[in-house]
Nucleic acid binder design. Sequence first.
RNA 1: GCUGCAAAACGUUCUAUCGCUGCUUUGGCCUACGGCUAAAGCGGAGGAAAGUCCGGGCAACAUAGAGCAUCCUGCUUCCUAACGGGAAGGCGCCCGCAUCGGGCGACAGCAAGUGCCACAGAAAAUAAACCGCCUGCAAAGGUAAGGGUGAAAACGUGAGGUAAGAGCUCACGGCUUUUCCGGGCGAUCGGGAUCGCGGUAAACCUCAGGAGUUGAAAAACCAAAUAGGUCACGAAAGUGGGGCGGCUCGCUCCCUGCCUUGAGUAAUCAGGGCCGUCGUGAUGGGUAGGUUGUUUAAGCCUGUCAGCAAUGACAGGACCAGAUUAAUGAUAGAAAUUGCCAUUCGGCAAUACAGAACCCGGCUUACAGAUUUGCUGCUGAU
RNA 2: GCUCCCGUAGUUCAAUGGAUAGAAUUAUGGUUUCCGGUACCAUCGAUAUGAGUUCGAAUCUCGUCGGGAGCA
Length: 127
Amino acid sequence: MYTFKKEERLCNKKLIDELFHNGSSFLCYPFKASWLLVGDVQQVPAQILFSVSKRRYKRAVDRNLIKRRMREAYRLSKQQQLYEQLNAADKKIVLSVGYIGKEIAPYELIEKKMLKLLVQLSAELVK
RNA sequence: GCUGCAAAACGUUCUAUCGCUGCUUUGGCCUACGGCUAAAGCGGAGGAAAGUCCGGGCAACAUAGAGCAUCCUGCUUCCUAACGGGAAGGCGCCCGCAUCGGGCGACAGCAAGUGCCACAGAAAAUAAACCGCCUGCAAAGGUAAGGGUGAAAACGUGAGGUAAGAGCUCACGGCUUUUCCGGGCGAUCGGGAUCGCGGUAAACCUCAGGAGUUGAAAAACCAAAUAGGUCACGAAAGUGGGGCGGCUCGCUCCCUGCCUUGAGUAAUCAGGGCCGUCGUGAUGGGUAGGUUGUUUAAGCCUGUCAGCAAUGACAGGACCAGAUUAAUGAUAGAAAUUGCCAUUCGGCAAUACAGAACCCGGCUUACAGAUUUGCUGCUGAU
RNA sequence: GCUCCCGUAGUUCAAUGGAUAGAAUUAUGGUUUCCGGUACCAUCGAUAUGAGUUCGAAUCUCGUCGGGAGCA
């Protein structure tokens, strides 16, 4: 339900390369999302990775904090906003969410924007 | 009591819900070595995890011995696995309340050789000679006491000496080479004799000691899939394409790929060599994945003994991070500390620096707050 | 994770250890022109940072900060 296990994370190097080369992307400030439809290889509806630029945030502590907040927001909202739509449409995707904001946002803002991003992604999927 | 400096040790805590990750136990499923899954229990960032500045362990490769080159280090003794680290001491410099305390020191050698010392100044290193002093009719010679300089002027002061002068000689003093006596394991200190007197080695260099190279993306192992390499066997029957002769096969022209040599800035050109179909098996290598390496360690805590100390020996105890696109989190509530407002209840805000990645020993740098000890200063009481 | 290199005016580059750190360009002001441009003249503007060695440091040495490159 609210879990976030290893299978839901995107670890395969080839898939990541393919995602960034061929995937389609959109912007939802302060996030940048890329996604790609994949075949029937994976068991869960979506695999995701989070990224924060090292150039923008020099300290490892800051990057960890942002990634943890993003991961928590995704964990709490993915089931209702993403998995049901995907299961209904019988599609599977890989997804990457990068943080492009200039400041470290508080958790409430990240949660709100993550909801908006997932709604936007569902709309893109229908097209 | 306050303030400053130094050293040591610390660097938020608790509860609930939802998660991530490692281990153990129990249950369930499977192809039962093992894998998947559910529940419970026990754990889950640091003093710097940082910078990657030193030193090691560990691993692979290399390795007769010696020399040269390159790089690093440079007072002594000790500690240590080792170190450019640490402890104790010696010497020099700086500061202070000055026989004492604190801080800093790339602290071997310019008396091996070579080089450099701007501007100013007569002169910046074989001493020379512009003014000056002395001898001399002059030519010339002697001399370095005095001369605005400069970071630095041939050791400083006084006396003797002389035509005038000069470590030329003597006394005292400073630095220094060699050596003797005494103290100390030693650096070195005290005293005597002797040689010498610009600075610079974070200038080249000399001397002494040391360094094989590369770093877990090292390295070892595992079973699969895919394409190609090599070898063996087999099939087909001449095999890139066209033409000619032809049973096999042979000849000629053109195309393409790879390797190599030469010319050219390059495109390219010329010469030489090799291969061109299919299947099976073996073999070694590469890619992606997994396991090991990998967390029990030159480690931590407590005590006793040895030592001035760094540290060592012995005894006892606890052991509990281990991710790999990379966990250690989110929310809510309470507490603690600090600051501000109020000065009774309280309210608001803040809680630093920063995130393990093979492991240790150091160094350096960042840091809110707070504890202990020592010292300096100010103030109050006796 | 490991290794190496570089920081000079706003910009591009110079500068044996020797002093007002130089040149081009930019900016500002002036001369010339009816005005603008060009030209000429003048001015402003910098050694990343903190120490050390030295009489003297952009240069030599060490620490810090920032930037870049390589290893796959």
